[in-house]
Structure formats: structure tokens, C-alpha cells
Design a protein around this nucleic acid. Structure first.
Lengths: 218, 218
DNA sequence: CGGCATCCGTGACGATACTG
DNA sequence: CAGTATCGTCACGGATGCCG
């Protein structure tokens, strides 16, 4: 009953009518990592009220961006997940994330901090640099958060979870991931300071070029 | 502590802290067409309160996304315009616009309707299809709204205003522009029905391929 | 008239408590 | 675990007034 609609026949205004409410895009941010339960979402969204979360999920469902699924009785749990239409928001979200990366200021004490958000930043950069000349697959670990990048013949996709096939494993921590994304650190420096691990230096450089990280000095 | 900030050290949350407030992105939408005066913005944003507009402009200014400029005394007027940092939002806005285009439903009576928003949709599509093999420049007119697309060696840019050099002029109306963007009409059909004018059919097709419009039947 | 500031009613939001 | 109920508060929308 939200007459809070902009009422513009404008694609941007219609989008904001759907996802412009407070918390809406952050709910979708969490669902980008895969299906989630109500309580998981609540835990990942510090400060949200349960009523607000319930309302946002209901609205996103009515916009056909999110669906509610109930698992069969062995372990009955209701999961929320993005619809195909909801996944259509990904390009916009990655662009918003990329815009926000240089604006991350020094950490204020009130700020909460999650490895998932560092992984989000690395995922958003996964197709902004030079694409590799041949197929690659990377599996990136940021303190338990895992996603993989598949640079194959059909372009570059960055999906949550471990890689389905063989992949170069890259492992780092939250702070280092943010520093890489903000280009305050080169991958080589991260390796030297034992902040990042990767078995194959050439694959690491290919990932760095693909993501547009800061280049090493010659 | 209702500073209304999410308080997350997350690039998406930081972006939403800056532009997630109501009306903020629509203000920026209007500024994408060039510098605007307070009253012009108010006229293009039906429903906004003057205090809200003043507050949003002040906040966007403090986020360094918008600057206020006062013209010299001949015709003293204060103009609001995007900063370079604010223009960094363009990729995100185009992605949000593209997400909203298929979601534009049939026109409800309450909806307001502006040629500028149709031009926005065409501008957002200006680099989603097949890039042309050689340099092109188009100047698109939608009921007085003018922008141009420059597909040169430095990539594809879509800027407000008329083209600085020679360009193929394309002229159409608001409804047709939306129909093209929604792929409900092909450019050829628009020509045949006298809804669109273009002096050069080959240039029109190049623009259609670049924008990913509906192809003509073979 | 353009560019706000102020006042006020309404409703969305935030926090807590409570329930199937 | 997955929400609903309640309530205080604050931001929003609309109207009006001030000032260059």
C-alpha cells in the first residue's frame, strides 16, 4: 500500500520503486551469496528490525525479485533466494559496488566488518581489467567466504561458492582483500608479506590483470 | 544514533549511504542532462518538497557528488551540476536504467511522463549491442531532448546536448523511443509508420545494432 | 521569481517484546 | 526459527513565509 511510489514512467524511477526502499539492496546483497534463511539475513544486516526485514522480503517477493522456498520436512527451513529477474540486478549492483570501493574511508569504530563484503568487492572487480587470452578459473577464499571466477569462452562470470572444476585457489584475509580492491597493495606485495597465498604466480597475475589491481613496479 | 547510515565497511553500503536516500538518484538523473537550477529540478521531480530537494542537494554536495555554481552577475543564477566523482555513478545508473526498461508496465494514469526519460532509456542502451566497425556519431532528438552518441576510437560515449561535429540526426517522439527501448518496435517499423526520421538508413541500422534494438525480420 | 527555511501532519522506520 | 505486535521517534510530503 506504499503510495510512496515516484509515479514516473521512467526506467530509473521504476527501478527505485522496486529496490529503492531502505535495506532492500542490502538484502539483495546478501542473497547474491546464495539462498539464505530469515535469521541468517538478520545476522548479516546489523541494525535491521525483524519487521523491516519481513516487510522488505514481502515487497521484493511481490516485485518478483525474490522467492520464498520451504525445504521438505526432514529439516524444514524457509529459504529466500533471488529469482532470475532479481539476478538481473547484478550488473547494477556490481557497478554500485565499484563506485563505492574508492570511497571506503578509514574504518570508523562503529563500522561493522565482514569478510563477505570484501569478497563482494573482489567479485565486483572480476571483469573490469584485461580479459585473459585463454580460459582460466580461480577460486577465491576470503576468511571462509568463497567464490569463483570462470573466464571461459562465454565471457567472465563470478559466482558464489567453490569452483565446479579445477581452479587456481587464492586465499587471503579481509583487510588484504580490501587493500587489493582499493589498489593500496599489489598482489606481489601481498604475497611477499604473507597476506595472500596462491600456488601459481602466473595465474595470480592473470587474475590481477583481469581485476584491474594495482600493477607491480617494474 | 539515527544518522541513518548503515555503518557497514562495505562498498555497496557506503554507496547507499551516499545516494540511497529518497529522491537522491532522481536528482542525479536530472543532472545527467547537464547543470540545472533549483526550480528546474523541482519541476522535473514531481512530488518532491522544496525542503527535501534542498536537503538532498546539500547532502550530495557534502558527499562531493554535486557542486553548486553561481553564474556571473549578468544573469545571476545558481546551477547545480555533477562533479567528476558524481559522474562516476554513470555506469551504475545506466545499469539501473537498463534493469528498469523491461519492467515498465502499461502506463498508469498517475504516471508522469517526460521525453527526457525516454532519452535516458535510449542513452542507457547506447553501448549494449554490437559496436560498429568504424567511427560513427549520432545525434538523437526525442521531442526536444537531445543527446549524442560518439562511437570513436576511444570507445562509445553518450553525452547530453548536440554533437560537437558532424552527426547523423535521428528524430522521434517519446512513445516511440520507449517502444524501441522495450523492443516492441523495430527501427524499420518506426520509419515506415512515420514515427522516426533519419536521413541515412545504414547509419540508423548501425545505431540499432549498437543499442541492441529489436532486429527487423529477414 | 528563484532559493531556500520553517512548521506540521502522517507514515515509515528502529528497537523490543512476544508467539506459533 | 520465523516471523507478528506494539510503540516511540524521525524522516518525509505539503504548505507557507522570508529574502535576495
Amino acid at each position: 500500500m506504499t503510495a510512496r511510489t515516484y509515479g514516473n514512467y521512467c526506467p530509473l524511477a521504476q527501478t527505485l520503486d522496486a529496490i529503492g526502499d531502505r535495506w532492500a539492496l542490502l538484502v539483495i546483497r546478501e542473497l547474491l551469496a546464495g539462498p539464505q534463511r530469515f535469521t541468517d539475513l538478520r545476522g548479516c544486516l546489523p541494525g535491521i528490525g525483524t519487521n523491516q526485514l519481513a516487510t522488505r522480503l514481502r515487497e521484493l517477493e511481490s516485485e518478483h525479485l525474490v522467492t520464498k522456498r520451504t525445504l521438505p520436512p526432514p529439516t524444514p527451513a524457509t529459504l529466500y533466494e533471488l529469482t532470475d529477474e532479481g539476478r538481473g540486478l547484478e550488473p547494477a549492483i556490481w557497478a554500485l559496488v565499484r563506485f563505492g570501493i574508492p570511497r571506503l574511508r578509514t574504518l570508523a569504530p562503529v563500522n561493522t566488518f565482514r569478510p563477505a563484503w570484501a569478497a563482494l568487492a573482489l567479485r565486483a572487480l572480476a571483469a573490469t581489467g584485461q580479459p585473459p587470452t585463454q580460459s582460466h578459473c580461480w577460486e577465491v577464499h576470503v576468511e571462509g567466504e568463497v567464490f569463483h571466477i570462470d573466464a571461459g569462452t562465454r565471457g567472465i562470470v563470478a559466482e558464489p561458492g567453490p569452483a565446479p572444476g579445477p581452479a587456481t585457489v587464492i586465499e587471503t584475509d579481509t583487510i588484504t582483500a580490501f587493500a587489493l580492491a582499493r589498489r593500496e597493495l599489489t598482489p606481489r606485495q601481498a604475497i611477499e608479506r604473507r597476506l595472500l597465498r596462491c600456488a601459481d604466480a602466473a595465474e595470480l597475475q592473470a587474475w590481477a590483470r583481469l581485476s584491474g589491481f594495482a600493477p607491480d613496479e617494474p
